[in-house]
Design a protein around this nucleic acid. Structure first.
Lengths: 225, 225
DNA sequence: TTACTTCTTAACTTCGTCTTAACGCTTTTA
DNA sequence: TAAAAGCGTTAAGACGAAGTTAAGAAGTAA
């Protein structure tokens, strides 16, 4: 499904132009003429991204962004600002903007920025499936763990587990997160099952002696390389 | 702990100026003069963010960014580009830039963009879990206390205790507050238990000789650095 | 069917953490 | 100054968490 964008822009001509352009580039766009209506639109639908003009009547972009953050801090926000607007620009970032675009809008740049923000926020479904761990490389799709010399083919669960670890390499991966993601439920048996898989993964990862999965007692695991 | 930035810039004057400015703003900066050395620096340390000049001898910024992504796709990249460079700019985004800055660099804007990118990539806006104590860094979430050289993994209670101390660094932390927060009850045994944990913490904190936990008789403790 | 793979369950072992106890030193109080 | 209370420290034990191996169970392919 194409990403859904909430566009709030009071300038009708620019607003319509942007909407048309974004739709041409396969985004779904909901255009609203001011902050108040933008907010109520945000209330009634799910969006993947908000594109907000800063200078607007009724409710300005920054205030709207604050309201949006209160409702759902996960949805990224990009501001549209006038070229001169330097101080406001900074305030905008302070209030949790993910990016901003200076008017007049360069359409290609806009697309690029939107895609960059979406890539970061939605670890996309097509997504990265190749990871490097020390000297090893791991491809989640083909479930191969590669040494340079030899290749080990992991099982489904092992691969899923390793992917989670890779996504938080050198950071704590919480046990509960794993159980919720891969088993859907946190109970004693799933926990034990996970430990078994972890043991198998450790064995596979011995291909590179520097790679280890360390345990944080009572919390989770860290994949270190 | 302050964010660690890998800065790769071949212009020595600009590079040094940026490094100085960023350090003034409490970032840790590793400055490298070209792509090759930038890559090897990236290999040997963990960074929170990379700031790469696009036009460089030996290895240009885009190529470097690609190599960096291969090693760790989670680390955000910001490019430094010349004003005119439009097509390259877009290529940069395609190759996974998180943002770019047009030269000549506006320092405040640079800081704002860095902070924006870091806020997005570092997942915990809710509760701060990273503290610095003297030369040490402590991450409550993963319970790691870091020296630069070595890392000690604390236990749950130790980590909780250290967090409380950090939150009131160089101020009195009342015994009763600790007991109420971490044990839920103030009695003789909990008090003794806390003292045991305190002793262990002191031992860990010997990593930096300047850091001490001093006792205020009958009142509580002060973490000094 | 048999052979094979993968995941779960079980059982046993090892390890880590927290509490409790003990002892000695320091500070406060009577 | 003596007694009491507060604190630093080490060690031992209990308990739960995690590592490990192997035996079922369930599914898949030949």
């Amino acid at each position: 499904m194409n990403p859904k964008i909430l566009l709030v822009e009071d300038d009708k001509i620019l607003g319509y132009a942007l909407k048309t352009y974004l739709e041409m580039r396969h985004f779904q766009v909901n255009l609203q003429p001011n902050g108040a209506e933008g907010l109520s639109a945000f209330n009634s639908e799910q969006f993947d991204l908000c594109l907000l003009d800063v200078m607007m009547p009724i409710m300005d972009g920054f205030t709207l962004a604050e309201e949006i953050r209160k409702l759902n801090p996960a949805v990224p926000v990009i501001f549209l600002t006038a070229r001169s607007m330097k101080i406001d620009k900074l305030q905008g970032f302070q209030k949790g903007a993910d990016d901003y675009i200076v008017k007049p809008v360069d359409e290609e740049e806009l697309i690029a920025r939107i895609q960059a923000v979406l890539r970061r926020t939605n670890p996309s479904p097509v997504s990265i499936s190749s990871y490097s761990i020390g000297t090893l490389s791991f491809d989640w799709h083909s479930r191969r763990l590669n040494d340079g010399a030899q290749t080990v083919i992991l099982t489904d669960k092992e691969a899923d587990l390793l992917r989670l670890l890779c996504e938080r390499k050198n950071q704590l991966l919480d046990r509960k997160v794993v159980l919720q993601e891969l088993w859907g439920k946190v109970d004693y048996f799933n926990r034990r099952s996970m430990d078994v898989h972890m043991a198998k993964l450790r064995k596979h990862l011995q291909l590179d002696p520097k790679v280890t999965i360390i345990n944080i007692h009572g919390k989770g695991f860290i994949l270190e390389d």
